[in-house]
């Protein structure tokens, strides 16, 4: 097995483990490259089927192309899609002008919390990776969140030899992270090899492309001429800049992501 096959195989093992352990399980789909790779891996794990419903948290601030792409793929691949949004907060005028972290908490974290409660999901597959940023670097494959949605990063279950702690006290839900050990470069190499359809926003137009996708007001494209997957891979091999440098919420303070993620952010 080459490196990509090994990564793929490890991820499929984890996806299958989660599907076996949790009756009520969903997969978070942000429309970005990572969660779309996760979706592809699930279809591989289950031989073309995706028996796990997808959840998209729509903040209403998403880049419009993302919604169009989401609906197109959902139809083509016959996916069960749940779209959640924190309507109450939106009615009260929540937006990035109220403070970026406040907005992320309300529209993303609380939006997700509402969907999880409504559908009583016990497990949630997500496409986060260790190399994205420091607090994600400390994550587990099976990572519990308590009834208040909180991540107790100081007391995480041991994971050895692919034996995961899958059962927790009542009220806990488990975030499952099958791509935790992948890098940004691995993701693009895999997209190339597997020919996975990826949203156009990642490819350069007029000298700029999105390297990481989020809400329009808080996401800035990078300077790039890469218009093919091969060119993106070449660009990443030579870059000196972190992946999430264009994500405004990460830069609010030194531990912004840790603070968001402790409260249940993705």
């Amino acid at each position: 097995m080459d490196q990509l096959e090994k990564l793929e195989s490890e991820s499929i093992f984890i996806i299958r483990e989660a599907y076996q352990k949790y009756k009520k399980i969903a997969m978070l789909w942000s429309i970005g490259k990572d969660s779309t790779v996760l979706l592809h891996l699930a279809r591989k794990a289950f031989y073309g089927h995706c028996p796990i419903p997808l959840v998209h948290i729509d903040t209403t601030y998403k880049i419009p192309e993302m919604i169009a792409y989401r609906d197109k793929i959902a139809q083509e691949w016959n996916l069960k899609l749940v779209v959640g949004s924190n309507d109450q907060a939106l009615q009260n005028g929540m937006g990035p002008d109220k403070g970026r972290l406040t907005c992320c908490n309300a529209l993303k974290t609380e939006g997700l919390q509402q969907v999880m409660a409504q559908y009583e999901f016990q497990g949630l597959l997500m496409g986060i990776r260790r190399d994205e940023e420091g607090s994600r670097g400390k994550e587990r494959y099976f990572s519990p969140r308590n009834a208040d949605f909180e991540w107790n990063y100081k007391e995480q279950p041991p994971e050895l030899w692919n034996q995961f702690q899958t059962e927790f006290p009542e009220g806990t839900h488990v975030r499952v992270h099958p791509l935790l050990h992948w890098t940004e470069l691995n993701v693009w190499q895999y997209i190339l090899r597997e020919n996975i359809p990826i949203i156009d926003l990642y490819f350069a137009k007029n000298g700029r492309r999105y390297r990481s996708l989020g809400c329009a007001p808080c996401t800035t494209p990078i300077t790039s001429e890469a218009i093919t997957i091969e060119e993106i891979i070449e660009e990443l091999k030579n870059t000196n800049v972190t992946e999430r440098s264009g994500r405004a919420q990460d830069q609010v303070d030194a531990y912004a992501m840790q603070k968001l993620r402790v409260r249940g952010y993705m």
Binding site: E133, G134, G137, K138, T183, A254
Partner: peptide, 21 residues
């Protein structure tokens, strides 16, 4: 670069494992 958590940096110790390619 590895001890990214606020508590790790404040106390100068590693709380949890991480891995980097």
């Amino acid at each position: 670069l590895l001890d990214a958590l606020e508590e790790e940096q404040a106390q100068g110790i590693t709380l949890d494992t991480t891995r980097i390619q």
